[in-house]
Simulated assay, not measured.
Amino acid sequence: MIVPGQIARVGRSAPSDLLVPHDDKLADVHFELEWDGARCLLRDASGEGTWLGGERVREGVVPPGGWLRAGETDFSAYVERVHQPFPAGSPQQDSKAQVLGLLRAQSASLYAVLDTTRSPRILALLRESVEDYRSLYEGVKGDALEEQAPYVVHLPRESALLEPLVHEGWGHRWGIYLVSPLALDEVRRHLRRFLRVEMEGRSGFHYFRFYDPRYVGHFLNACSPLELARFLGPNLIIFYEKGLSLERMEARGLPQCSTPGAFMLRHEHMHSLKRAVVHDFEERMMAWLRNHLGSYCGEMDDAQLLWAIQDGLMRAHSYNMVTERAACIYICAQFVCGRDFDVEVSWGTQILNDSRFTSPTERARALVRALELHRGIQLPV
C-alpha cells in the first residue's frame, strides 16, 4: 500500500520495497510508483523500460486498475476505497443517482445477487458490511469456491452497502437486484433451483449464470409465460442494468407455475443468449481497442470499427481461434499488422497454419509472442 507522498520501489532485491526475487528478468529496482493523493506516477528505474497498458514507457500515469509488466511479472495498481468519479451532471452520475433512488424506494425487501468473479472488491464490500449474505453454493465444494461464488445479500432500506454497490458496480455487471416479500433463506433456496439446468438436445446438467446482467434480460425475454412465472416465482421482481438504464421484470399477471425438476433451456433461449454473447464481445472489443490500441484505430468511426471486429471474428474462427481470448488476440493482430496479416505477413501465415498447435490457446500465445518480437507490442490480454 502506498500513502500520499510515498514512493514504492519494485524489483528483484533490496533496496526495493516490493520484492519479486524469483523473476531473473527484473532489475534490483525495476520501477517506482509514487502516489500524490490524486495520481499514481510510474518511473522506470531499470533503463530497459516498463510496460504500461501494453506500451514500453520510461514514465507515465497509471490509471486505477492499470496493468503493468516488468521482467516476466504482471502487476495491477488499484486505489483502495476510491472510485473514479464521473463529472457532476454527467449521464453516468445521473443514472447512478436514479438507480439508487429507485432501489431504495422499493416497499418489499431488496436483495442483490452478486458475481464475485467480476471483481475482488465485491467480496471485500460484503465482508466489511453488517448485512446478511449467503453464497448460492453450498457444501465442501461450495466452501472451496468461496472467492468465486455468487452471493445473495439482503439490503435493508437504509443499508450502507447499497450505495457503494451501485456507485462502484453499476455499469460493471456486478449482478442483479431482486425485490421479494420472502426472507433471505427462502430467496436463496428459490435461486439455487436455477444454478443447474438442462439444455434441449444435450444430456446432463449445465451451470447457468442467470445473475449475469449482460444476459438475464435476453434470457427472460425468450421465456414463455409459464417459464417466466417459474423463474420469477412468487411476487419476485428483477432489476438489471441495460446501458445506463434500470430494466425491470416482474411476475404480475403471469400464471401460477410449480413445475418440478430442473429448468430446461430451450433452443430459443440458447439462440438469444448466443446473440447476446457476441454483441457483448463486440462492445467490449470496441472499447478495448479504443483504450489500448487507439493509434491503430485511426479515424475509424464506431460503425467501421464494428465491421472490422466482425470481420476479425469470422477470420479467427476459420483458424479455429474460437475462444474469446484467442479471437481478441487475432483481432488485435489485424489492427497492428493489417487486415490480411494472415496471408501477407510471413510469421502470421506460419503461426495460423501450423498444425502443431492443437488448441486456440496455444496458437493465440504464439501470436502474442510474435507481436512482441516483430512489432514491439505487448498485449495485456
Rank of each mutant, 00 (worst) to 15 (best):
I309Y: 05
P4S: 12
Q350M: 11
L100F: 02
C328G: 11
K242T: 00
R248E: 15
S90V: 10
V3M: 07
H206I: 05
V187P: 07
L379G: 06
R214F: 06
E128H: 03
R39I: 05
V166G: 04
A370F: 04
G5H: 02
D115G: 06
Q84P: 01
L52D: 11
N291A: 15
E146I: 01
H218T: 08
L195T: 12
F86Y: 13
D342Q: 12
R275F: 05
S90P: 08
S258E: 15
D342K: 02
Q106E: 15
G298V: 04
N320Q: 13
H22R: 12
M270W: 06
L254Q: 09
N353E: 12
E227T: 08
D23C: 08
P63W: 03
G348N: 08
A144L: 13
R230K: 08
E227P: 01
A326Q: 08
P360M: 09
W51Y: 10
Y240E: 01
H218L: 05
L100D: 02
P91M: 12
E59A: 14
C297N: 04
F205S: 13
E48R: 13
A70T: 08
V3W: 01
G201R: 10
M321F: 02
A276R: 01
P360L: 09
D143E: 15
S258A: 14
G175M: 04
I2A: 14
G175C: 03
P156F: 02
Q304F: 06
P4T: 06
L42T: 08
H154T: 04
R375C: 13
V278T: 14
E72S: 14
P225V: 13
C40P: 00
F205W: 08
R192T: 13
G338W: 08
V130K: 11
T323L: 11
F205M: 12
N353I: 06
A326E: 10
H317P: 00
P87C: 01
L226S: 14
C328R: 13
A333C: 15
S346N: 09
R193D: 09
R356V: 03
F357K: 00
H190L: 10
R252H: 06
L191W: 11
R69V: 13
Y319D: 03
E80D: 11
A160R: 09
G298P: 01
